Amino acid sequence: MPNLALLVALSVVACELAAGTTYEMIKEYAGSGFFDDWDYYDNYDNLTNGDAIFVGSGSDLTYIDSTTNRAIMKVDNTSTVAYNYKRDTVRIASKDRYEVGSIWIADMYHVPYGCSVWPAWWSQAPDWPTGGEIDTFEGVNLVTMNQMALHTESGCKQVDPVQSSTLINTTDCDYEVDDNDGCVVTDPSTASYGAKFAAAEGGVFVTEFAETGISIWFFSRSSVPSSISSNSSTIDTDNLGTPVANWPKGGCDIDTYFTAQNLIFDITLCGDFAGTASIFNETCTGTCYTDYVIGNASYYDTAYFDVASVRVYGVNGTDTTASSSSSSGAMSNNLWDSRTAAVLAAAALGATALLAI
């Protein structure tokens, strides 16, 4: 006669193990309230040496487009900037920080590009480099492909990734290696950045911040999965296909190198990346500051984010904001804990068959 309790325990474990990781929406930045829960940097760029001043709230550089109801973040493209001065632009960071066990999905119709322009959609722990950084979207000047990267303290590397991109630039994430290049993966799609991104009506960036690893997906507008385009309240990562970039736990223990992250949009000008002569001259002519920042303001007509929404999801709907989680990473263990409990319960009944799981 089969042991009923054993069969129940086996069934629970089988169901848990067969299921993909499902995340439920816990936060939405969209519509008229998009900018309500962000902090403005409100200072000059003293972080990456950009020729930029990040404006405070209330500026006309951030607003909701009345026609589309989408959020616009832009570089000043109307003012004449005097020599030795900097051009106004935007940097905002989410008030909430999100723990391991989160996904954030950014739906964008346009991203900034142009000579001297250095935009990014990324996340960072407040005590960087402790706690790490995840760059989901970044580019400079007139490059045609998005680059993604992690930046951490020493010891985190990309090892045996499962990803669609074969364009792996660097594998050591240590911020002290190669002038803080990080471990960089480039998206081979020319629709992932710049003019072709805009021509395709943009797309969606998905970032999974999980104990098993960090993954990034990019979907051009025509290929956005229905679970995302329908603004579903849940996301199952098994339905997203292969990520374009992946940093598995095997080379970088996520709980060791990462803590809760603030989400960040910013657009700086020139600076340590876009303004470096060897990089600037790959796609642009002239001199970054004198020919562009203080040049014709119309150079910045394409230097703006047009964002429909940012949605944040947590495993099993658990709120993963730093302010409400009891400890970093605690939520992401819930699914494993439920499996373990079922295994132990069955084992207590003499379920030696479970050892095969």
Rank of each mutant, 00 (worst) to 15 (best):
W118I: 01
W128A: 00
Y109R: 08
V143I: 12
N141T: 01
S94C: 08
A71C: 09
Q124S: 07
E133I: 01
F137P: 00
N77T: 02
W128E: 03
P119D: 11
A125M: 10
A93H: 03
K86P: 04
S102P: 13
D76K: 03
Q163T: 10
C115Y: 14
W118N: 14
V90T: 04
Y113K: 09
G132A: 08
D135P: 08
D107I: 05
T78N: 10
Y113F: 15
H110K: 11
E133N: 00
W104A: 01
Q124H: 13
R87P: 07
M148Y: 13
H151C: 07
T144I: 05
M108V: 11
W104I: 05
S66L: 11
E99H: 12
T152N: 03
S94L: 08
L142G: 04
L150Q: 06
V90K: 01
V143N: 15
E153Q: 14
E133L: 06
M73V: 07
C115R: 09
E133V: 03
V81Y: 03
G155M: 09
G132I: 11
T89G: 13
I134Y: 14
T67K: 13
K95N: 10
E99W: 10
M108K: 03
N84T: 12
V117F: 01
V100T: 13
R91A: 10
I92C: 05
D160C: 11
P129R: 06
E133R: 02
